[in-house]
Amino acid sequence: MLRLLTRELRLAWVERSGGAIALIFFLIVVSLFPFAVGPQPQVLARIAAGVVWVAALLACLLSLERLFQPDAEDGTLEQLVTHGLSFEAIATAKIIAHWLTTALPLLLLTPLAAILLNAPAASWGLLAAGLALGTPALSAIGGVAAALTVGLRRGGILISLLVLPLAVPTLIFGVGLLDPLAGVAALKWLAATTLVALSVSPFAAAAGLRAALE
């Protein structure tokens, strides 16, 4: 599984596609909000955390369609299975790779997004902590949706429909982290949501992949 993970990272580096596009998309979505709601710093500061979260969620969706699809098309998935890897191991490696190549760079860009939205400097840490804790859940849920839609035409749109509702709790608790009154409770709930997503998703995604090979 480690071998698969390193190869995924190497491929992501050589192909230089998904991750970088997701990052640019994230920044563009963030910078659309000042155009839409006006550039007043107070307004932007008020909505900053929510905007960063929604933008991160949308950016995470972008690379999901290519998570399993190329491997299913070129026979790599079949080979991984005949080489003795379990579907659960494949799904886990893919989810980790997605987080490392998409979510982690997004995380590093959040201070930039926070500056653009005039978020108070004190909130950056909580925002980043929330994303660090919440994005693994997004990758996990996304991995399940990507596995379930392998081989479908228009799989990409379907992935969005599947992921967004399931990501609602993560979004609520992630933004809730910045609430001075309910912050600690939100932190616990966010951690719990991520743990549940991480523990369930390899099995759900594996079931999806197994069905895709039938």
């Binding site: 596609s17 640019i24 910078s31 550039p39 005039n118």
Partner: peptide
């Protein structure tokens, strides 16, 4: 007193950056 304001000049340079990046992404696609 601030890192960033949505001043016309800054904004259009930021948009220029996005156009550059889209251009490079298209090349490598």
């Amino acid at each position: 007193g601030t890192w960033w304001v949505w001043d016309a000049r800054l904004t259009s340079v930021l948009v220029l950056l996005f156009i550059y990046m889209g251009y490079m992404a298209l090349w490598s696609a």
